[in-house]
């Protein structure tokens, strides 16, 4: 770690760590919203559950980092099951509405609970998150997500996204799959929350409001729904844009809002939505090696 510290200035280290944390959380939401097609507007609530659980275990029980992170993530996943169980049986926008409500409720609960420090928040949380452990977890998350999406489970989720009734008639237990996907996605949000808490050392309920959920959703939609490289790109771009726009000072959020509208109007499927990566790579390799055969289509239905 020390040799990395000398290579990268603390400012860039901080930005890169946040990008990594957002990639993990965006991958989680991508599984729920991108792959399974269930809109969640409360991802930050699961992030906050992970953050508070991990932070409390570190401070009060002296857990090592990995144990706190894991407990936080598992706790977020459990809450995912609890919230998903009644709401995911329904079709339509009910998950969106329930998660939105859940997010607002969690903020109020954290404001009022004694153990989480109420409005004052929790501090000091030991600073243990660094570039190495964040990016190790990013690689792990990408691998897990890739394996998940290209498994029987992932194909079932895609089928649910494309047509729930057809999926059901093919023998897919849609409710169980949706709850599982939601729980796994929430698990990753909780993991990101734990990493976040151990980086900033101070967390308060206001950090995890509706706008934070929206921020993560923007990353997934901007990158391209259902696309793992898309979620990574979206998180990378949107987590660093506020830093890039810092020169604009007060006009920063104004530009951010206008940029969101413009990006959606001109690229409604996201930056990488509908891009088939295997095909892209194959084509590039063939062009480079001078092979003129047309690239074979990947018919598995995984968009990009």
């Amino acid at each position: 770690m020390t040799f990395l510290d000398n290579l990268i200035s603390p400012y860039y280290t901080q930005v890169l760590i946040f990008v990594g944390i957002y990639i993990i959380m965006a991958l989680g939401l991508n599984l729920i919203t991108g792959v399974t097609g269930q809109l969640s507007l409360g991802h930050a609530a699961f992030m906050s559950i992970g953050a508070y659980t991990a932070a409390l275990l570190s401070i009060k029980a002296g857990f090592p980092l990995w144990a706190s992170l894991l407990s936080g993530a598992v706790m977020a996943g459990l809450f995912g099951v609890v919230l998903g169980f009644p709401t995911l049986r329904l079709t339509g926008d009910y998950l969106a509405i329930a998660t939105l409500g859940f997010g607002e409720i969690m903020v109020v609960v954290f404001y009022n609970l004694k153990i989480t420090g109420g409005a004052l928040g929790l501090s000091p949380i030991p600073i243990k998150t660094n570039l190495v452990n964040v990016y190790l977890l990013v690689v792990l998350a990408v691998l897990v997500m890739y394996r998940l999406q290209h498994s029987r489970f992932g194909r079932a989720l895609l089928a649910i996204r494309e047509d729930e009734i057809a999926a059901e008639s093919m023998g897919i237990h849609t409710t169980r799959y949706k709850i599982l996907a939601f729980a796994i996605g929430s698990f990753f949000a909780g993991l990101g929350g734990g990493l976040y808490a151990h980086r900033v050392s101070y967390i308060a309920p206001g950090d995890f409001g509706f706008m934070k959920s929206i921020e993560i959703l923007n990353m997934v939609v901007l990158g391209g729904l259902g696309s793992i490289p898309g979620a990574i790109l979206g998180a990378g771009v949107l987590a660093s844009i506020p830093e890039v726009l810092r020169g604009l000072r007060d006009y920063r959020m104004l530009f951010y809002g206008a940029l969101l509208v413009a990006m959606m109007v001109f690229r409604p499927n996201g930056l990488l939505g509908g891009v088939n990566f295997r095909r892209l790579v194959l084509r590039t390799v063939r062009t480079l090696t001078g092979d003129r055969r047309p690239a074979g289509g990947d018919k598995t239905g995984v968009r990009g």
Partner: peptide, 30 residues
């Protein structure tokens, strides 16, 4: 912000709406 997105996924219109919302309150803050 919404009409150009009428035929694309509902999520992109939703994000566009959020963009408008951020734009408007930042404008008033300024």
């Amino acid at each position: 912000a919404y009409r150009p997105l009428r035929r694309s996924t509902r999520l992109s219109a939703l994000i566009s709406a959020i963009g408008v919302s951020i734009f408007l309150y930042s404008l008033m803050l300024l």
